[in-house]
Amino acid sequence: MSHKVTIVTDSTADIPEELIRKYGIHIVPLRVLFGEETYADGVDLTSEQFYEKLKKVSVLPTTSQPSPTDFMDVYQSLLDENPERPIVSIHLSSGMSGTYQSAMLGKSLLETEGDITVLDSKSASYGYGLMVVQAAELAEQGKSAVEIAAAIEGMQQSRKLFFLVDTLEYLQKGGRIGKASAILGTLLNIKPILSIDEEGVIYAVEKVRGHKKAMARIIELFQKDLTGKRVNLAVGHTADPGSAIACAEQLRGHFTLNEVIYTNIGAVIGSHVGPGVIAIFMWPVPE
């Protein structure tokens, strides 16, 4: 008898709540620290509350990854429920955070031997949230852990993402991008188009003057790979659904859209990119 695979991820996948519930995805939260106050991402602090709080503080928040014990506890409780059931655990890029390493350590601390596959998404936010949802859909269809891991690898190659930040101040302070780019970002309304490379590290694709030109350029970059294909689209926003809807409408004129998902960029990713970000994720509809 086959046992349906359980999917685990962490809170930086920024998966809409309705999809988490629909597929029974298990989320291990990262933490956001405002001075002495600590919040579990998505548990004690919604993205709306986070961006409100961000407006009022003088010192930028910091974040911390789950401990190996946090992962061990989640894996152990799932194995206690059903020792035969495989687990696929997909996490934030190891190029940006130690979360993946924590999950690996958590797995190694288990006393019971379980079938657990831990994957480094090499991405962030819904850039890998979309892979987690795909994994959950495949699990529903009764696919094995090996089949799910192979599908995720395929999606890593085929999905494309770009994001526009209002300011590079947050990425610079968090040490997530080179300082030179931050200086350029403050000059003359320069909008850097950012992406994530194959190693799972943020880089600047190019710098464009003004939001309008930046969006036009992003459309061109997507068209290189996805013209003529039916695509799924997800737009991530920092508690500003209006900007995400306007962005999707603009893209609708250039691509054959299948599914469109809007997602909040949560507190942990928000701490590193700041407010006013638009993140665009596109991937071909599986044949």
Results as ranks from 00 to 15, higher is better:
132 V>W: 01
79 L>R: 06
83 P>G: 09
141 Q>H: 11
112 T>L: 14
151 A>N: 14
90 I>E: 03
152 I>C: 06
153 E>C: 05
85 R>A: 12
142 G>K: 02
150 A>M: 13
152 I>M: 08
102 S>W: 06
98 G>T: 05
117 T>D: 04
129 G>L: 05
68 P>A: 00
116 I>A: 05
102 S>F: 08
70 D>Y: 07
86 P>W: 04
74 V>W: 01
128 Y>R: 11
152 I>L: 08
116 I>P: 04
137 E>H: 12
93 S>Q: 08
134 Q>S: 13
139 A>L: 06
71 F>M: 05
121 S>Q: 07
97 S>K: 01
98 G>Q: 02
77 S>L: 00
111 E>H: 11
132 V>T: 07
84 E>S: 15
81 E>G: 13
131 M>P: 02
117 T>E: 09
148 I>S: 05
79 L>N: 08
99 T>R: 01
94 S>G: 10
136 A>R: 03
101 Q>H: 07
147 E>F: 15
109 L>H: 10
68 P>K: 00
124 A>I: 14
98 G>H: 00
95 G>F: 00
123 S>K: 11
92 L>Y: 09
105 L>H: 12
75 Y>P: 08
138 L>H: 04
126 Y>D: 08
101 Q>C: 02
113 E>P: 15
88 V>F: 12
91 H>F: 08
111 E>F: 02
72 M>R: 14
71 F>G: 04
77 S>W: 01
128 Y>A: 09
71 F>A: 05
99 T>E: 00
150 A>V: 13
126 Y>E: 06
109 L>Y: 09
119 L>D: 09
147 E>S: 15
97 S>A: 00
77 S>I: 02
90 I>R: 05
92 L>I: 12
130 L>P: 02
118 V>L: 00
71 F>E: 03
96 M>Y: 07
149 A>K: 14
67 S>N: 14
129 G>S: 08
85 R>N: 10
94 S>A: 11
116 I>V: 12
111 E>W: 02
153 E>N: 11
135 A>Y: 04
149 A>C: 09
75 Y>H: 09
138 L>S: 04
70 D>A: 11
133 V>R: 01
96 M>C: 13
69 T>P: 04
137 E>Y: 12
130 L>N: 03
140 E>K: 15
141 Q>P: 04
96 M>I: 15
133 V>T: 03
142 G>P: 06
79 L>Q: 11
72 M>D: 09
79 L>T: 04
128 Y>S: 10
101 Q>T: 09
153 E>F: 01
153 E>L: 08
103 A>N: 04
126 Y>N: 12
89 S>H: 02
92 L>S: 06
86 P>S: 08
109 L>N: 10
118 V>I: 04
128 Y>P: 09
128 Y>F: 15
79 L>S: 11
132 V>G: 04
145 A>Q: 13
127 G>W: 07
121 S>F: 07
113 E>L: 13
136 A>I: 06
87 I>A: 03
72 M>H: 10
110 L>I: 06
80 D>A: 15
86 P>V: 07
96 M>L: 15
91 H>I: 06
143 K>L: 07
137 E>V: 15
80 D>Y: 12
127 G>V: 12
97 S>E: 00
114 G>T: 10
116 I>R: 02
112 T>C: 15
123 S>N: 15
106 G>L: 04
93 S>N: 10
145 A>R: 10
91 H>S: 06
85 R>D: 08
129 G>N: 09
126 Y>L: 12
92 L>D: 02
98 G>N: 01
153 E>P: 06
70 D>M: 07
105 L>T: 15
135 A>W: 05
